[in-house]
Design a protein around this nucleic acid. Structure first.
Lengths: 203, 203
DNA sequence: CATATTCTTGAATTATGATTCAAAAAAGAG
DNA sequence: CTCTTTTTTGAATCATAATTCAAGAATATG
């Protein structure tokens, strides 16, 4: 009855996402989006209303992908401490492989999106809170098993803070050592161990 | 012999700085700068060449101000551990009072400035390294006095990472508690103490 | 195969913002 | 008071980018 869409909406969003991620919201033009997605301006505006709408859809794509990955790692085994360890190592690996695109899209966006843009800010805040909640739940499991004695909620916040910070730090100094070191400090603190001075191995 | 300049160059830079800080580089137009500085476009271009040149001058102003402050606190007393403590508390206070302007201008800029802009990126990297070096020196003093046993350089990096991260975290969740908590974790780790669960008092 | 419906196209429009430049203004030297 | 030098002005220009829209294309249904 009607002309069907001639593209994969998922693919469009992933392509747009990668571009926004690399160049940032302000520096990415609709022309750029047209170039990477193949869709013409009219189609894009038809689909998403405007640039901001497209960006919100991109944020959804990004955060869904991330949340799924985090959830998978944090529930990877029966051993919560191991899962936290895997999560932290995963973060290191991801940060390194994201180098070109400058760390986390959400962090970047949060710091930059103008104040007016409450909608986007709140969107991101909600996603952050979800990741933190997942992490806190896993830490609590570790506490229940006697693997650590930290305050789960507090320590989840501390971990998240360190991850944010690592993204920034790595951007200014791309020495992989810092990433591993920070993870090691976190694990040591979690276990109240002496800091070992040896970086953890990467998988 | 010639017409003298009719403004205070320092004041111009501080005004421009505050605007860039609040709105970000891309979202600040020359028109905006004209509005807050009182200088007309022609004068601005005369002085700084272009928008990027102006921004570099702003970065200089910002980092000079910051470095001076950091140096002052870290050399505030004969007790290096106390000085580190004061520094961390100072950071908390500053982060809170900066709320409106979204954390550190340098962090924000680093994450956002397009790749091409190597000059600005390197500029910021150098400043970061200076702060870190100051911090490492103070920690080393503490080590020499037997106040702590951490690796000074490593721990300086960890502190810096946490500060970056706090800026981001606080942006998404303006609960002051997180800032104090993170500082407490750092101090506990520095002393290898049990984490106390009580936030440090603000001055 | 005609038609209704929805999707696509991309040039045209509108908006915004960086930059230039020729003319005007200010000050001191002679 | 005139002239030289430097600064200031701000409208005009140039550049870029967001958004619109009328015409064309594709499909399924009757």
């Amino acid at each position: 009855m009607a002309r069907p869409i001639g593209y994969d909406p998922k693919e469009v969003l992933v392509n747009a996402m990668n571009l926004f991620w690399e160049k940032g919201y302000e520096s990415t033009s609709i022309q750029d989006i047209v170039a990477v997605t193949g869709l013409k301006p009219g189609s894009l505006y038809n689909l998403y209303g405007n640039k901001e709408g497209l960006f919100e859809a991109v944020l959804d794509t990004y955060s869904t992908m991330n949340l799924e990955q985090v959830e998978e790692v944090l529930n990877g085994s029966d051993d919560p401490f191991k899962n936290i360890e895997s999560f932290l190592q995963e973060v290191v690996v991801t940060t390194i492989s994201n180098k070109k695109t400058n760390g986390c899209l959400l962090v970047k966006t949060l710091l930059v999106v103008p104040h007016k843009d409450k909608k986007i800010q709140e969107h991101i805040t909600v996603i952050f809170a979800q990741v933190e909640a997942l992490l806190a739940k896993t830490i609590q499991k570790a506490v229940d098993l006697g693997q650590t004695t930290v305050d789960a909620k507090q320590f989840a916040k501390f971990i998240i803070t360190t991850i944010y910070g690592s993204h920034v730090y790595y951007k200014s100094d791309d020495d992989v050592g810092i990433l591993r070191q920070n993870v090691q400090f976190l694990l040591d603190t979690l276990q109240k161990k002496e800091h070992s001075n040896t970086a953890i191995a990467l998988t």
